[in-house]
Write a protein that binds this DNA or RNA. Structure first.
Lengths: 338, 338
DNA sequence: CTGAAAGCGCTTACAG
DNA sequence: CTGAAAGCGCTTACAG
C-alpha cells in the first residue's frame, strides 16, 4: 500500500502538507499543491479510510439491517438507501437477520465495532430492548418499514390504511365474503394490516368471519390452506392477501381449485411488486413507495449524522390503490354509487 | 466510546494485558483474565474495529459489487454471500453499479480505501481494464455470474448450455419457430445465451430466423415487441426468453395478443425465480443455483483471503431444466423418442 | 505472565 | 504557508 509518507517524500514535503493539500480545508501554496497532486496521481495514492476514520471518529459508512433481502420489498428499499448514501459519499454495509433477534443484536454490535456513522434498521418488531439500547447509545438511527413509539425516527407506511384501501375497494365492488391471508399476527406489521381488513368490513356492516382468516407463518406457503378452504366449498367471493407474493400464491391456489379470477373470486394484494402487472389477471394491489422509503430513511439518517437535532419524526408515506384486473365488480348498483 | 484503556484501568492492568486476554492468542493469568473479562462486560466494551484493522492490516469486511440488487437474481446471490461471510466472521459492503463502468470503478476505489479484505464482483463485462487492474493489485477477488479469462477466480454457470437446455427441450417437444428474447448482445452473458439458442436450433437442422429474434435493452420491456410480432401474424410456436422476468413479460404479451400458452405458444425462461411456479401456466425454466453461487464465491474469496494460493479456478455450476406447464408437446412422434 | 513502547496511517492544533 | 509532534485505539515485539 502506498501511504501519505510515500507521497510526501515524492513531492518533497511533509505528510502534513499532503494531508492539507488533499483535504482542501487549509490553504496550501499553489505550487506545492500541484506537486503533491502530481505525486498522488503518479503513485495512485488512496488515503486509508481506516486511519482517517480512527482519527476523525467518522467512517462514511452506514449500516442497513433488513430481515431478508430476498423478501421482494427489500431490494427496492435498499436500492433507495444505497443510491442516497452514495450521493452523499457514504458506503453501505448490509446485514440480513431473518428476523432473528439474536442476529439482529449481533449485527448491531458488529456495525458499532465498525464505527458506522449510523444505522437504518428494518427490524422484525418482536423485541424492542436492543433498539432502545441502540437509541440510547446516541448512534444516529432511523427505523424503516416499522416504527417504535414516537421517540425514534422512522419511515413507514400506514399498514392499517393500506389494508383498508385494499379491502374497502373489495367491499365497494360488492364483495362480502373476503378471505384474509395474514401472517404471524404477533408482528405489528401484520396485525395492523389485519385491523385494516376488519375495519373495512365493519364499516360496511360485515362481521369478520374467523373461518375466512388464514394465518400462515412467514416461511410457509399459503397455497395449501387456500386450496383446501376452497375445495371444502367455503363461500367466498374475494381474497385479500397481505402482500403480493401471498396474492400470487393465492391466485394459483384459487385457479387450481377450479375457480376463475376474478369472475368467481377477486384477489387483491399489497406491495405493487414489479411482476404484478404481468400476472394473469394483472393484480389489483396497494402500492408502497419502497424506493422512496429507502431514500427518505437514508436522507434522514444522513441529516442526523450531520448534526440535525430536530426531534424524532415519523415519516408516514402514502400508499395507493392500483386498480388492475383481478377484482370484478359484483353489483351494478355499487358501480353507480362509485 | 469506551476504549481499551478504560477497561485496563477498571481491571487494574495495562492495555496490553487487556488485549491479550481478549485475543486469547497469548497466555494470560487466569485470575487477571477474569478481572479483565468482568471489566469488559461491565463497561460493555467493544473493540474498535478501525484501530484493529489499521494495526493488523485486515478489516474483516468484504465488498460485493452487483449491477442492481433489484434484478431478481441478485438478492439470492447476495444472501448466499452474506450468510457465508457472516459464518466466517466477515461483514458485507454492498454496491450497485447499474453496469456503469464509472460507478464500478468508483466502487472498487472506495472499497480499497476502506481496506476490504476482498471483493466479489458481479461485473457487467463491458470493459475489463479495471478488473485486470484490481487483479494486478493483489487484492483477493472473485468474479461472480461472469468470468474473465482463466486468470481470475470465478463462479459462473454455463450460459450457453443453460440456453441450450431450454431451447433443446423446445425442439425436442416439436417446436420449430422459436422466438428468442435476447438482451444487449454486446454483453457476454447474453451473447452466450444466444449462442445456446442457435446451437439447439442448428443441431435440429433448423436455421435460426433473424425475424424471430428480439433484442431489448436491459431497462426496457419486451412486451411491446412481442405483442407486435404476434399481432403481425408471425408464425411462431414458442418463445425462449433469456430470463424469467422476460418470460413473464412475454407471457403477458402472448396472452394479450390473443394466443394461449401453451396450446398456441410455449414459453420457457431461465432463472427459476421464486414466483415462476405460481404463474399461469407455471413456467418451465432452467434453474441457476443462485444462492449456492453466492456461497461458493464467498467461500472461495475467504479461502484466498486466508492465504490459499491455489491457481485461479473457474467454478462452473450446474443448471437444470425445470419442467412445468408452459410448454406443450407438439408431436406425438417426438414423445416416443424421448 | 505483564508493562512500556512503538507503530499502523492519518489529521490537526501548535509553533514557526 | 509549512513542519514536527501528538494522538485516534488498537496489537505485538521487547524487556523484564
Amino acid at each position: 500500500m502506498v501511504t501519505i509518507k510515500d507521497v510526501a517524500k515524492k513531492a518533497g514535503v511533509s505528510s502534513s502538507t499532503v494531508s492539507r493539500a488533499l483535504s482542501g480545508k487549509i490553504p496550501v501554496d499553489e505550487k506545492t499543491k500541484e506537486r503533491v497532486l502530481a505525486a498522488v496521481k503518479e503513485l495512485n495514492y488512496q488515503p486509508n479510510a481506516l486511519a482517517k476514520g480512527l482519527k476523525e471518529g467518522v467512517t462514511g459508512t452506514i449500516g442497513l439491517i433488513v430481515p431478508n433481502i430476498c423478501n421482494p420489498v427489500f431490494p427496492l428499499v435498499s436500492r433507495g438507501v444505497e443510491d442516497t448514501a452514495r450521493k452523499h459519499g457514504y458506503t453501505l454495509i448490509l446485514c440480513n437477520t431473518d428476523e432473528d433477534i439474536n442476529i439482529e443484536k449481533e449485527c448491531i454490535q458488529k456495525l458499532r465495532k465498525q464505527w458506522v456513522d449510523g444505522i437504518i434498521l428494518a427490524a422484525s418488531g418482536r423485541d424492542d430492548s436492543h433498539i432502545n439500547e441502540l437509541k440510547a447509545s446516541g448512534l444516529p438511527m432511523v427505523l424503516l418499514i416499522r416504527k417504535l413509539g414516537d421517540e425514534v425516527d422512522a419511515v413507514v407506511i400506514d399498514n392499517k390504511k393500506a389494508a383498508y384501501q385494499a379491502v374497502r375497494y373489495l367491499v365497494d365492488t360488492g364483495h362480502q365474503r373476503i378471505i384474509a391471508v395474514i401472517g404471524d399476527t404477533t408482528l405489528p406489521l401484520y396485525s395492523e394490516r389485519f385491523q385494516g381488513y376488519c375495519q373495512a368490513l365493519e364499516e360496511a356492516g360485515i362481521v369478520p368471519d374467523p373461518s375466512l382468516v388464514i394465518k400462515v407463518p412467514d416461511n410457509e406457503s399459503c397455497y395449501d390452506a387456500i386450496y383446501r378452504l376452497i375445495k371444502k366449498g367455503v363461500k367466498a367471493d374475494a381474497v385479500f392477501a397481505l402482500s403480493d407474493p401471498r396474492a400470487l400464491e393465492a391466485m394459483r391456489a384459487v385457479k387450481d381449485a377450479g375457480l376463475r379470477i376474478p369472475q368467481d373470486i377477486s384477489v387483491v394484494g399489497i406491495d405493487n411488486l414489479q411482476f404484478t402487472p404481468f400476472l394473469d389477471p394483472p393484480l389489483t394491489t396497494v402500492s408502497q413507495p419502497l424506493y422512496q422509503m429507502g431514500e427518505a430513511a437514508a436522507e434522514r439518517l444522513i441529516s442526523i449524522i450531520k448534526g440535525d437535532k430536530s426531534p424524532p419524526y415519523i415519516n408516514v408515506m402514502e400508499t395507493r390503490l392500483i386498480i388492475r384486473k383481478s377484482v370484478e365488480c359484483r353489483t351494478s348498483n355499487k358501480i353507480m354509487q362509485l
